[in-house]
Simulated assay, not measured.
Amino acid sequence: MGMSETTFPRRDADGRVLHLAELLASVAVGLVLGILALLVIDGLSSLFGLGRFGQLSGWLAGILPVWLFIEEFRAWHQVRGRIGMALVSGFLAAVLGIAVAAVAESALPPLGSGAVGSAVSALLYGVLWYVGIRWLADRGVPR
C-alpha cells in the first residue's frame, strides 16, 4: 500500500499525515465545520425557546480535530513515547486554550470564547504533536 494522493490530508502507507501544513489545514476545516454546526444548533435552540443564543459551549467545535488527532495517534503506534508526547502536547495546548478562552470570556459569550479556546488548543496541539512525534521517531527508538 503506497501513498494515497486522493485523501486530505495526504498520508503515508502507515496512515500518518505527511505535512504539517496539511494537518493544520485539516484542523482548521474541522474547527470551522464544528463552529458552523454549533451556530446552527444554538440558533435553532434559541428559536424554539430552549435558551439564549451563544450559550452553547464553543469547546464542542473541537470534536472533528480531536478525531483527526486520535487517528494520527493510532498511526504512530510503533513509536515509543507517543503516549507521553500526546499527554505533554495535550496539556500544553489545553492550558493555553483555557487561558485564551478565559480572556475572551469577558468579550464573548460561551460559544465564542469556547470556540476561540478550542481553536487555539487544536492548532497548538497539532504543531506540538507533529514536531514532537517526528522527533521521537528520528531518535530511532521503536516500540
Rank of each mutant, 00 (worst) to 15 (best):
L20R: 15
I83W: 14
G117P: 13
L31Q: 09
E22N: 00
Y130F: 15
R80T: 07
E22S: 13
A99D: 04
R52N: 12
R143V: 12
G30C: 05
L31F: 10
G62V: 06
Y125N: 03
L128G: 10
L92Q: 10
L33T: 13
G34F: 07
L108V: 04
W67P: 00
E22L: 00
L47N: 10
L38Y: 01
L92R: 09
L92G: 10
P65E: 09
A137M: 04
D42Y: 07
V100N: 01
L128Q: 06
A94G: 07
S113K: 01
L44D: 00
L60D: 07
S118P: 11
L111K: 07
I41N: 00
S106A: 15
W129A: 13
I98V: 14
L68H: 14
V29W: 10
A94H: 04
G34M: 04
I83K: 14
S46G: 09
I98A: 09
I83P: 00
S89E: 12
G84Q: 06
R52A: 15
V79N: 02
E22K: 03
S121G: 09
A102I: 03
G51M: 10
L38I: 15
L124G: 03
V127D: 01
G126A: 02
V95D: 14
A93Y: 03
G58T: 02
S26R: 05
G30K: 07
L87Y: 05
I83F: 13
G112S: 12
